[in-house]
């Protein structure tokens, strides 16, 4: 008889599932609860066999724009219109006369492109298992794959939107400097942090359906609370300045926008994000390990 497997990896493909022996009768609790490492084990497995989620991400992107005349152009068009219109309007409304409006375009472009990515990935991770219900019920229970698929399809959109960021760098007085080297560190930090939150949200929202609505509200609110269309230096700087550090999204955006637009290395913000990542992933791993056997029952 085989020994107990801590984290059975059921599903299609090669496998061997061993549920633990009956002890005190059927209590309804699912036995053989995955270990806390389940998330990381599954993640490694998913990265070793990326076929499904990579192809799925590509299909999702392709399907979204397949029947449209302008196709993938829409991914960029919406963002471009937003940046141009709001940039023009708010540079008049918010900036003091005589200030540099061009840097404001760069500020809003980078901030907004990143924000779309954050908002879309977090929002969609709350419904990701429900969306793939029929595949899960049919036996494909590599839950990490579904999250990675959703995340990578937003990465593709982000890549398209980077065209705007490149355009901004070329057209505005933003110049590349040594500070941009820190992007090599901060961009991965940004991604890892968001992916961790996605895992956490995907599991928690599968159990508590209210989370999806909550996130919708929170994200809508934080679009205005986060310095995307405004700058921390505007208005009564000191008052805003203190509260801004309570906003998690501020750190995420600042670690990329700071070096890219302002040639300024925000060490404090980088440190906060780096410190938060282990906590985020710990929460994600705990939730995942706890929830994994129950996900098919919840959706």
């Amino acid at each position: 008889m085989e020994t107990l497997v801590d984290s059975p990896v059921p599903g299609e493909g090669e496998r061997s599932v061993v549920a633990p022996k009956k002890d005190a009768g059927d209590t309804g609790a699912i036995r053989g609860r995955p270990s806390i490492l389940a998330l990381f084990q599954d993640l490694v497995a998913a990265i070793k066999a990326p076929g499904f989620w990579l192809y799925g991400a590509w299909i999702d992107t392709s399907l979204r724009h397949r029947s449209q005349a302008l196709g993938a152009f829409w991914m960029v068009a919406g963002t471009l219109a937003f940046v141009l219109m709001l940039g023009t309007l708010y540079s008049q409304v918010l900036l003091r006369p005589g200030s540099d409006t061009k840097i404001y375009y760069a500020h809003i472009a980078v901030g907004f492109v990143l924000w779309i990515f954050i908002q879309q990935s977090l929002q969609q991770s709350t419904g990701v298992f429900n969306k793939n219900k029929s595949m899960i019920q049919n036996g494909y229970v590599k839950y990490v794959d579904y999250v990675l698929r959703m995340f990578s399809s937003h990465l593709i959109s982000l890549a398209y939107n980077l065209l705007i960021v490149v355009g901004v760098v070329l057209l505005t007085p933003v110049h590349l400097s040594a500070a941009d080297l820190v992007l090599l560190l901060t961009v991965p930090l940004f991604m890892v942090a968001i992916l961790g939150v996605c895992f956490f949200l995907s599991v928690v929202a599968a159990r508590y359906t209210d989370i999806a609505e909550l996130m919708r509200t929170v994200l809508r609110l934080f679009f205005f609370v986060t310095p995307i269309i405004w700058m921390p230096t505007m208005g009564k700087g000191a008052v805003v300045g203190a509260y801004i550090y309570l906003n998690p999204f501020y750190y995420l955006i600042e670690i990329i926008r700071g070096p890219l637009v302002y040639n300024h290395v925000p060490w404090l913000e980088i440190g906060v994000v780096a410190g938060a990542i282990p906590l985020i992933w710990l929460a994600g791993a705990l939730a995942y390990a706890r929830a994994k056997p129950y996900i098919p029952l919840w959706i």
């Binding site: 085989e2 059975p8 299609e12 496998r15 061997s16 599932v17 009956k22 059927d26 049919n138």
Partner: peptide, 13 residues
């Protein structure tokens, strides 16, 4: 199929 896990007993696939 491994979608559900048994709540008691032993299942080997």
């Amino acid at each position: 199929a491994g979608v559900l896990m048994p709540t008691a007993g032993q299942l080997e696939v």
